[in-house]
Simulated scan of single mutants.
Amino acid sequence: MREIVFDTETTGLSPLDGHRLVEIGCVELVNKVETGRTFHGYFNPARPMPPEAEAVHGLSSRFLADKPAFCDSVGELIAFLGECSLVAHNAAFDFGFLNHELGLAGHGVICMTRMVDTLAIARSRHPGAKHSLDALCTRYGIDRSHRVKHGALLDAQLLAQLYVELTGGRQIGLSLRAEPLMPSVAASHAAAATAARPALIIRPPRPHAASAEELSRHSAFVSCLANPLWGEASTPG
């Protein structure tokens, strides 16, 4: 199963206020394992970067000035996203900006049924706890020491690790296979298991009845016992 974990950086909190997407980072997972394939892009928002937003992600207007517009990279992004589920933290925020940019570029929006929100998963699993990406990485022992400021690709990579932990973690390999083995593969596995099994040695049963000599010795021993308990039990009261 293919999934894309992604994160965005923007000029503000809402596209309805004229804010734009300036960075996106995507990480590909197949069966909850990172494949090494990523997509990362910076975009010129065609507007000034507010100081409060720059303080969060460190992307200045000067840095973004020579970057392409979103519409110039949208084809490559859409090809990478494909038709699979898209995972994000507080996903409604990222989906809102992504769909807004897709609309401005003349493309259809991404259906919200593809959205997987790790924030909702975390709230369900840990009610009352802190659910920021930093707090959840600390909870699950995910190293974020190299995260000084927000960055879309770095945050997507951290989120990919967190998503795996939230949905099974290191025990995910214990789940049943999604697809049955091919007959030839199953046969080879069975043959290997049989070959590895130690040979069964069948031994004849050992005699366990007392011999005549043992019975005689036992009777002689019992006859020497003084006032045995079973003798008292058999004496009439």
Score class of each variant (00 low, 15 high):
residue 221 F to C: 08
residue 10 T to G: 12
residue 215 L to H: 02
residue 62 R to T: 09
residue 152 A to S: 13
residue 20 R to Q: 13
residue 185 V to R: 12
residue 3 E to S: 05
residue 22 V to S: 05
residue 29 L to C: 04
residue 226 A to Y: 14
residue 14 S to K: 08
residue 223 S to P: 00
residue 50 P to L: 12
residue 46 A to S: 15
residue 118 T to C: 00
residue 149 K to R: 15
residue 196 A to W: 03
residue 186 A to K: 14
residue 158 L to D: 06
residue 57 H to M: 09
residue 233 A to S: 00
residue 82 G to R: 00
residue 157 Q to V: 09
residue 124 S to A: 13
residue 166 L to Y: 04
residue 210 A to R: 10
residue 62 R to I: 02
residue 189 H to Q: 15
residue 50 P to G: 01
residue 155 D to I: 08
residue 48 P to G: 00
residue 177 R to T: 08
residue 3 E to M: 12
residue 19 H to E: 15
residue 27 V to W: 00
residue 33 V to G: 03
residue 47 R to A: 12
residue 217 R to D: 10
residue 127 P to Y: 13
residue 80 F to W: 00
residue 218 H to A: 13
residue 147 R to F: 03
residue 112 M to Q: 11
residue 197 R to I: 00
residue 176 L to G: 05
residue 100 H to T: 03
residue 20 R to P: 02
residue 25 G to K: 06
residue 105 A to K: 09
residue 94 D to Y: 06
residue 64 L to R: 10
residue 141 G to P: 10
residue 106 G to L: 00
residue 101 E to K: 07
residue 88 A to M: 11
residue 172 I to R: 14
residue 57 H to A: 04
residue 216 S to D: 14
residue 122 A to Q: 13
residue 111 C to K: 11
residue 209 A to Q: 11
residue 215 L to C: 10
residue 206 R to K: 14
residue 199 A to R: 12
residue 83 E to H: 03
residue 36 G to H: 01
residue 79 A to I: 08
residue 156 A to M: 03
residue 54 E to H: 05
residue 38 T to W: 00
residue 52 E to R: 07
residue 34 E to P: 06
residue 50 P to S: 07
